[in-house]
């Protein structure tokens, strides 16, 4: 039991992802879908950060000690995933930005951002829809 609870941040990451996934599937409002997608990706950030944790670790600060050599202050978390996820956050933000840009255009062209209404309009205009 403690084994399962001990990795609670992984649970949170899964739950966050599932919430995002559910949002993409169930929500009919395009903006809500985009937000859900963001949530889904945020879950992944948490996953990356969680895997960097080292028991009792601190920030990876190295410093010069007495004899002139450079050493860490103590056990430290793996900095690499943090760096990676910084990139992933940027990507995620860009995805959200592109999504919103497209949604704005959809609003202009269709006059709505409800998935069902757009689908109905596409079907009504015929051709290419049926496959």
């Amino acid at each position: 039991m403690t084994e399962l609870l001990g990795i609670y941040n992984y649970w949170i990451y899964v739950v966050l992802m599932m919430i995002g996934f559910y949002g993409v599937i169930a929500k009919k409002n395009l903006i809500k879908q985009a937000i859900a997608l963001g949530l889904f990706q945020t879950g992944i950030f948490l996953f990356y950060i969680s895997m960097a944790v080292v028991d009792g670790g601190t920030a990876p600060i190295w410093t010069t000690i007495g004899d002139g050599s450079i050493k860490a202050l103590g056990p430290y978390d793996n900095p690499l995933p943090h760096v990676l996820i910084l990139t992933a956050i940027v990507v995620s933000v860009s995805v959200l930005a592109v999504a919103l840009a497209i949604i704005i255009n959809i609003k202009w062209k269709y006059g709505t951002i409800e998935y069902d209404e757009i689908t109905a309009m596409d079907r009504a205009s015929g051709g290419g829809d049926d496959d």
Binding site: F21, V24, L30, Q33, L37, F40, Q41, V95, V98, A99, I102, I103, N105, I106, K109, Y110, I118, T119, D122
Partner: peptide
Amino acid sequence: LTASLRYLILGSV
């Protein structure tokens, strides 16, 4: 636009 958004969501997943 809808095609692109659809690709965006599935592609991002």
